[in-house]
């Protein structure tokens, strides 16, 4: 996983005893500014329920006036609580206060990355590894049981849903994609059929995809050598790629970096090797823990 679990702030908008209530428009403005800034906000209410506290540092916002509640440092099992008075403050000033509190606590800034990445629906996934072999950016890996997993979310190319297009089971989602079923909409029978058709991407171009691309390149090259027409060769390549782009909705820059069939085979071989090594390592660790120590090891 490229993103280790990161400590974050928990912002609480407190309007209970000791804090003046916000008008609902002010509450909405404050919440919107914080959310747009990448901060979650908890709004507790009497008798209501919110998620339990954890170790995240709490920033309690409220209109406390002259008697704000006391702050408390982190103690065993309890988070640190910072208190910030937001009386007479516009929403952007509240956001600035939270930013300053985050800086002070040495916590990372949110929102530095556009969250575009595949999510696997394991109810559908058959672990066929097509996504792993097809992805150009090393987004996928396998866990120690050999199960496909998304290992490097931030390597995914924003707006590229190519791997979901080649998944024969429609098991890969991009929640921020525009259309279903890739966006997470329920998968219908006809989706599976149409996606299965797309799996055999080679068929789209009337044979093996790479062979087809090669043939077209060869034709273009021949044409280039006989006619010395560079623009025509480029047009040929563009036409071939446009065909893929239209059918699979793959961005240009991804198409321009399509690997060869050999590259894909090599990547699949390396992933398999890696998984086998991992399995072997975990078996060695298991064997080590189950092994009965020798008399020498006991010092006998």
């Amino acid at each position: 996983m490229s993103h280790p679990e990161q400590e974050r702030l928990r912002v609480v908008l407190y309007e209970g005893p000791g804090s003046q209530r916000l008008a609902s428009e002010e509450r909405l403005e404050t919440m919107t500014a914080l959310l747009e800034g990448g901060y979650g906000v908890t709004r507790p209410r009497p008798g209501g329920r919110v998620s339990p506290e954890d170790e995240s540092t709490v920033v309690m916002l409220g209109r406390f006036g002259e008697t704000p509640p006391a702050e408390s440092p982190a103690e065993e099992g309890r988070p640190a609580v910072l208190v910030r008075d937001i009386a007479n403050q516009a929403s952007m000033a509240v956001l600035e206060q939270v930013e300053a509190a985050r800086d002070g606590a040495g916590l990372p800034a949110p929102g530095k990355w556009t969250p575009w990445f595949p999510v696997v629906d394991y109810d559908r996934c058959t672990n066929c590894m097509q996504c792993l072999t097809f992805c150009l950016f090393d987004v996928y890996g396998v866990d120690k049981e050999g199960q496909i997993q998304v290992s490097n979310e931030d390597k995914c190319k924003t707006s590229c849903p190519a791997c979901s297009r080649v998944c024969p089971e429609v098991a890969i989602l991009f929640p921020k994609y525009k259309k279903g079923p890739i966006n997470g909409a329920e998968v219908k029978k006809e989706d599976v059929q149409s996606e299965s058709m797309k799996v055999d991407i080679s068929a789209l171009l009337g044979g093996d995809l790479y062979a087809s691309l090669r043939d077209r390149q060869d034709t273009a090259r021949k044409r280039f050598s006989t006619e010395r027409d560079e623009s025509r060769a480029l047009l040929e390549r563009k036409r071939c790629l446009a065909e893929l782009k239209e059918t699979l909705d793959i961005p240009d820059e991804v198409l321009m970096t399509l690997p060869s069939a050999g590259d894909i085979e090599e990547r699949a071989r390396r992933a398999k090797e890696k998984a086998e090594k991992r399995r072997a390592r975990s078996k060695t660790v298991q064997d080590e823990t189950q092994r009965v120590p020798s008399q020498d090891e006991w010092g006998i």
């Binding site: 993103h3 974050r8 914080l34 979650g40 709004r43 008798g47 209501g48 329920r49 929102g111 999510v119």
Partner: peptide, 28 residues
Amino acid sequence: VLEGLCASEVAFEAVPDLCEMSARKDPA
């Protein structure tokens, strides 16, 4: 939706983006 929640008396949690939180393994 946010407006409706803010105008009501229900307790709730607003999160910026579940996708981002999932990828970053946000403790929330």
